[in-house]
């Protein structure tokens, strides 16, 4: 659903859309760099250490702790939740640290990545060939973003502490399309 338009300085008109997760190839292909999204539904949370472990399992051909097909992974490591809170501060971490692993994950079916900052050419190519998408949420807005997370559960690698894999449910989680499957890259616009 199109909600409205935002005029960017020296940039095209930007579309605001509400998106239900999971993002499939069809949905990903309908997105363009610069689209402002509000995401609702389930996604995984994983960052450096969890990516390394999953990557090693893929290389060995062993079973994975999460199903990558049509998955969305939010690159994030939250601060601890207080009593009564779903999660602590929960903003994005720098995505480029996952660049080594992301193409393999995308080739295995992952469709959406959420983080902040630039991606490598290898990742952007993998986005195009797999009809996937890379989104950025606002770095350093962890308190605000935590309010969009309505459920959170550690589902693997609890020993990693803040780096454990979580499944979270979000409602109207704001994110901006940075890299789309047409080769569009918001940081280059």
């Amino acid at each position: 659903m199109t909600l409205g338009k935002v005029q960017l300085l020296n940039k095209d008109i930007i579309m605001e859309r509400h998106i239900e997760l999971p993002i499939t190839s069809e949905v990903a292909s309908s997105l363009n760099a610069g689209d402002y999204l509000y995401l609702s539904g389930e996604m995984y949370v994983a960052r450096d250490a969890a990516h390394k472990r999953i990557y090693e399992l893929i290389e060995k051909g062993e079973p994975l702790p999460i199903d990558l097909k049509d998955s969305c992974i939010y690159y994030m490591g939250p601060s601890p939740a207080r009593e009564g809170q779903v999660i602590g501060s929960a903003g994005p971490t720098t995505a480029s640290r996952m660049d080594k692993y992301a193409p393999t994950f995308l080739d295995k079916g992952q469709k959406c990545m959420i983080g902040k900052g630039k991606r490598s050419k290898e990742v952007r190519d993998a986005i195009i060939r797999n009809h996937a998408v890379y989104l950025a949420s606002v770095g350093g807005a962890g308190a605000l973003l935590s309010k969009c997370i309505v459920e959170s559960e550690v589902i693997a690698y609890e020993d990693l502490g803040a780096e454990a894999i979580r499944k979270i449910k979000v409602k109207d989680f704001p994110a901006i399309v940075v890299c789309d499957d047409k080769g569009g890259n918001l940081y280059d616009l």
């Binding site: 809170q85 501060s89 903003g91 350093g140 962890g142 308190a143 935590s146 309010k147």
Partner: peptide, 15 residues
Amino acid sequence: NLQIAGEDKIPICQD
């Protein structure tokens, strides 16, 4: 975000 951090006692940034 800054307002929520102070009022609801959530760190400004998760890092």
